[in-house]
Simulated scan of single mutants.
Amino acid sequence: MSQANPTIVFLAGAFADPSCFDELAAGFNNAGYPTAYAKVLSLNPSDPSSVSTSKDAEHVRSTVLLPLLDKGKDVILFVHSYGGVVGGAAAAGLSKSARRADAKKGGIVGLLYLAGNIVGEGESLKEAVGGAYPPFIKEHQPSNGLALIAPVMETLYGDVDAQKKADLEAGMIPHALAAFETPATAPAWKEAAFDGRRVYVRTLDDQCNPLFIQDIWLEKSGVEWETVDMKTSHCPFISRPQDVVKACTPFFEKWRE
């Protein structure tokens, strides 16, 4: 009897609604994979001082991951950019093997980081990028405690059709600076349960998370990652969604249990 494919849970980067994955999710759906989105509290909150990285992670864990796992679902965590900080912490202790050892059904069977931020326990994203914001992060815009990215297209979407510029620029959502400045809790990718189940997609022409810093994160993690290179900007799920599906599906097939 064939096992159902795992559910892919998407975690978007900062400044983005999870609907940014709609075209990519449709591609995975067509390949037989159910999908779900997680949203973080630090995306344009009414009170930017009330949020943190750890609160984002706990929210994702309690509202998306645990409900799926408790239904017996296997999950692949697919994270982009800041989603890597949140997803890494949210998935801690939820591997398939850990849950099986606790006589629980379901579990996370693999981690896919697409230009994902990798931070260690007790580290903030700001620290992980060198302790200072890059120039495209516009602090305290449009109001205190929030930030925006500018220029949008050059930073995030360098290989996206210019006809989409208006929609992509309008889709820029303020994000709380506290999300980048508060420490993360222990990440799932450190766990031996994910040996052979970690993939990092390196975006070679990335102007947001440049290739050199992606490589620093991978090296500093101290664990083994399988890597895939895509000659794209920061958001290939916008510019080349079908290529992302093709690149990722072979790993997902291996992770089925």
Rank of each mutant, 00 (worst) to 15 (best):
S81Y: 03
G84M: 03
V60Y: 01
K73F: 07
F10T: 05
L24F: 07
D70Q: 15
K55T: 09
G93A: 04
C20L: 15
L65E: 05
S46I: 11
T53K: 15
F21H: 00
L69W: 01
K71L: 13
L69I: 02
D74S: 10
A16G: 13
S19Q: 13
E23C: 10
G88M: 06
D70P: 09
L43Y: 02
A92R: 11
K71T: 09
V9D: 06
A36Y: 05
R61N: 06
L24N: 00
G27W: 01
P34E: 15
K73H: 11
K55W: 09
S52E: 06
A36C: 12
K55G: 10
F78R: 10
S42P: 07
V51P: 05
V60G: 00
S49H: 12
N30G: 14
Y37F: 11
G88D: 09
L77Q: 00
A89P: 01
H59S: 12
V64W: 00
G83E: 11
V60K: 05
P34D: 15
L11F: 02
G88W: 05
S52W: 00
L66G: 08
G13Q: 06
D56F: 08
F10W: 00
G83A: 10
A91L: 01
L24K: 08
S62M: 12
A31S: 06
L77F: 03
S50N: 14
A38T: 01
G84H: 07
Y33F: 14
D22S: 14
A92T: 11
L77A: 03
F78Y: 14
A91C: 08
D70G: 04
A90R: 04
A26L: 14
K96L: 08
L43D: 03
V9L: 10
D17H: 14
G72L: 09
G72Y: 05
S46P: 01
F21G: 01
N29F: 06
I8M: 11
A38K: 05
L77N: 02
Y33E: 03
D47Y: 08
L77G: 06
A14G: 11
L69C: 03
R61S: 07
L68D: 09
G84E: 04
A91R: 07
A31D: 05
F15Y: 13
L69G: 01
G13W: 06
D17Y: 10
V79I: 14
K39T: 15
G72R: 02
G84W: 07
A25M: 10
S50C: 14
F28G: 06
L94H: 06
S49F: 10
A25C: 10
V85A: 11
T63H: 09
G83I: 04
S81N: 03
A57R: 02
K55E: 14
G87H: 04
F28R: 07
Y82F: 08
L41I: 12
K73E: 15
L68K: 09
P67L: 07
A14M: 05
V9T: 01
N29D: 14
S49D: 15
T35A: 11
V40F: 02
S49K: 12
A26V: 12
I8C: 11
A92M: 12
H80V: 12
S42W: 00
S19T: 15
